[in-house]
Amino acid sequence: MHQEDHTMAMRFSDTNEWEEDWFITMSGEYQHLWKYIKDKCDVAGVWKPNVAMFQAITKFNVSLDSFLKKVNGGKLRIIVLENGRWFIPGFIKFQYFNKQQEFELLLNNPLHKSLYQSLNTNSVDLGAVRGLIAVCQPSKDKDKVKDKKKELVISYCFNEEEFKKVFNEWICFRKEKKKPLTQLSVDKQMDFLAGYTVQEACQIIEESIRNGWQGLFPLKKINNGISRKQTVTDSAAAVNAAFDDLIGSLDAEMRGRG
């Protein structure tokens, strides 16, 4: 008789969430969806959105876009991957390394290997995995060779000195945070940044440094494709122009009285 393996169904649950504002202020539907995602995601915290299944089981009607805004309020708890799947940055650390501030994935360990395979298959930026500091490959004599001790080989996607300077600042920032970049992470980040202009790539890196993020993320676009920075700049220009018009009107009025 075939015996099903229910090992993956047994997971830790963070009971402290019931005392955190971001969670208790969400509607019951969204609280259930958050729990559902953590229960149904794969071993590494990657979930393929299936809102129809959730709604069929719970009878709740939810909006994934609205949910993302709620759950990521104040902290990035879900990252939407390029393949459309969702990734929980803190899932691996909470489930398998909860008593450690940092951890490594040892690829001669079956569980660690399965975690890495999922991350790699879904093109997850390893820098976004909370707590992960290195991926270690076993050598022929079965000793652990740590990527973090190897010198990074950087193939810059842009030759401009401005970009190289900003990316090197990113490397130093990650080291200062005790979250050094791995070779795989650097390679994937270069592939990601290559899809932007030099100026946009620099802006992406600088935004992550400024906000203390561990990964690099697409620029947010609002107002029919106009970037937030451009919108703020245009708004400031409009305010300055209105102020100049007001001063000019007052000056003309004062001269008229004179």
Rank of each mutant, 00 (worst) to 15 (best):
Ala56Glu: 05
Gln31Val: 15
Ala52Trp: 03
Phe23Pro: 09
Ala52Val: 14
Phe54Ile: 07
Ala56Phe: 12
Gln31Met: 12
Ile57Lys: 10
Met26Leu: 08
Val46Ala: 07
Ser27Thr: 03
Phe23Arg: 00
Asn50Tyr: 04
Tyr36Lys: 00
Ile37Met: 00
Lys35Leu: 11
Phe60Thr: 08
Lys35Phe: 12
Trp47Leu: 08
Lys40His: 13
Ala52Tyr: 10
Pro49Ser: 04
Val43Cys: 02
Ile37Ser: 08
Lys59Ile: 06
Lys35Val: 14
Ser27Gln: 03
Ile37Ala: 05
Ala52Cys: 00
Ala52Ile: 13
Trp22Lys: 10
Tyr36Gly: 08
Lys59Gly: 07
Val46Leu: 02
Ile57Pro: 03
Trp22Asp: 04
Lys40Val: 10
Leu33Lys: 03
Val51Ile: 06
Val43Thr: 01
Cys41Asn: 03
Gly45Tyr: 07
Val46Met: 02
Tyr36Glu: 05
Lys48Gly: 02
Glu29Val: 15
Gly28Trp: 06
Thr25His: 13
Pro49Cys: 04
Glu29Met: 10
Glu29Pro: 11
Val51Gly: 03
Lys48Ser: 12
Asp42Asn: 12
Ser27Ile: 12
Leu33Ala: 11
Ser27His: 12
Tyr36Ala: 01
Phe23Tyr: 14
Thr58Ile: 10
Asp42Lys: 08
Leu33Thr: 06
Gln31Trp: 07
Ala56Ile: 15
Lys40Gln: 12
Trp22Met: 07
Val43Lys: 01
His32Thr: 14
Lys48Thr: 13
Lys59Glu: 01
Phe23Asn: 09
Thr58Trp: 06
Phe54Gly: 01
Thr58Met: 09
Ile24Lys: 14
Gln55Ala: 11
Asn50Asp: 08
Tyr36Asp: 04
Ile24Leu: 12
Gly45Phe: 10
Met26Asn: 12
Ile37Val: 14
Phe60Tyr: 09
Pro49Gly: 06
Lys48Asp: 12
Phe54Met: 00
His32Gln: 11
Thr58Asp: 03
Thr25Glu: 06
Phe54Lys: 03
Phe60Trp: 06
Gly28Phe: 14
Ala44Ile: 00
Trp34Glu: 08
Phe23Ile: 12
Glu29Arg: 15
Ala56Trp: 10
Val51Glu: 08
Lys38His: 12
Thr58His: 04
Lys35Ser: 00
Cys41Val: 05
Ile57Phe: 15
Pro49His: 09
Phe54Pro: 02
Ala44Lys: 07
Lys35His: 13
Cys41Pro: 02
Gly45Val: 01
Ile24Glu: 13
Lys35Pro: 02
Phe54Cys: 10
Ala44Thr: 03
Asn50Met: 03
Phe60His: 07
Gly45Pro: 00
Lys48Tyr: 04
Gln55Arg: 11
Asp42Ala: 05
Val43His: 04
Trp47Arg: 01
Asn50Leu: 02
Lys59Tyr: 06
